[in-house]
Design a protein around this nucleic acid. Sequence first.
DNA 1: AAATATTAGTTGATATATCAATTATTGATT
DNA 2: AATCAATAATTGATATATCAACTAATATTT
Lengths: 145, 145
Amino acid sequence: MEKLNNTLLYTLDKCFRTYNQFAQRNVRKAGYDITIDQWLILKSVAENPNITQNDISKIVFKDNASITRIIQLLIKQDFLTREIHPSDRRRVNLTLTETGKKITIDVNEIALQNRAAALKGIDEESIKLMRDLLQKVIGNCNNGS
Amino acid sequence: MEKLNNTLLYTLDKCFRTYNQFAQRNVRKAGYDITIDQWLILKSVAENPNITQNDISKIVFKDNASITRIIQLLIKQDFLTREIHPSDRRRVNLTLTETGKKITIDVNEIALQNRAAALKGIDEESIKLMRDLLQKVIGNCNNGS
DNA sequence: AAATATTAGTTGATATATCAATTATTGATT
DNA sequence: AATCAATAATTGATATATCAACTAATATTT
C-alpha cells in the first residue's frame, strides 16, 4: 500500500481545504458574519436574477437539500427574501435585500484579494494549464462507468 | 463582479467534489459500507501503528473533533479498537480489527483504480507540474498574513 | 379530462466540519 | 512538591453534505 500523501488527489484535497480555510478566515477577520458557501449563493442570485434553486445547486456544485438549508439561513440573516414564482408555483423567486447586496459586494472584494494571495507567484500560463488538467480529471470522473 | 465559474479555485472546488463523489460511488458499488473519509483514517492507522488522533488529523487534514467522531463510528462498525495508551494516559491506542484490516486493503484496491481512472490520459509530467502548483497555492495560503 | 410522469423544492436521518469550551493527564517552573 | 502551562482527546452547538422519501405543482400521454 503506497503512502497516502504522495498522490495528486491527496494534494488536491489538501489544497482545497487549505484555501477554503484561508479564505474563510479572511472574511471573518474583515468582520463579516457569513460563510464562503453562503456568499457563493448570494453571488449566484446577484449574477442571475430569476435563478432557481436547482440551478444554484448546479453552479455551486452542492446538493439541492443543502441549498434549501443555506437559503433558509440567508433569509433568517436578512440577506435574501423568497416568494413564490408568479407563473410557476413550484418555483421560488429569490431577491437580495439591501443588506444582502452590500455584503455580496464587500465579500467579493475580499474574495478577489484571497484569490490573488493564493495564486501569488504563479503565472497565467500555469494557471491555464492547471485549469485544463482539472477539467480533464472532472471529465474522467463523469464519463467513466 | 466577474463570473463565478471562471476562476481556478472554482474549478479546483468542482474537481475535488467530482472526484470525491466518483470515488465514493465506486466504493459503494463494490459493496463496501464505508466512506472514503473513514477509509483514510483506517489507512493511516495501518500505515502508522502507534499514531495519535492528533497526528491522524494532520495527515487527513481534518479537525480533531471530526476525527474523534469518525473513529467512534469505526469502532461501532468493528473496524477499529481503542485502548488507553500504557505510558501516556491522555493518548489512545488504535488497532485495526481483522475486519478492519481486510476492508482497508480491499478499498485500497478500489482507490487505486479510481485514481487511475481519474488521471487517465494525463501524463506523468503534467501530474508532477500540477502537484507542484497545488503545493505552491498551499504555501501561499499558509504563509500569507 | 383523467391518469401518469416530471419538476421544484422540502424534510428526515445520519455523517462530517468547525469553533470554542472542557476534561484529564503530563510536563515545566519556581 | 505545588503551581502553572501544554497536550490529547472529548463534547456541545451549529453549519453543511448526502441520500432517500415526500409534497405540490406543472407537463405529457392516452
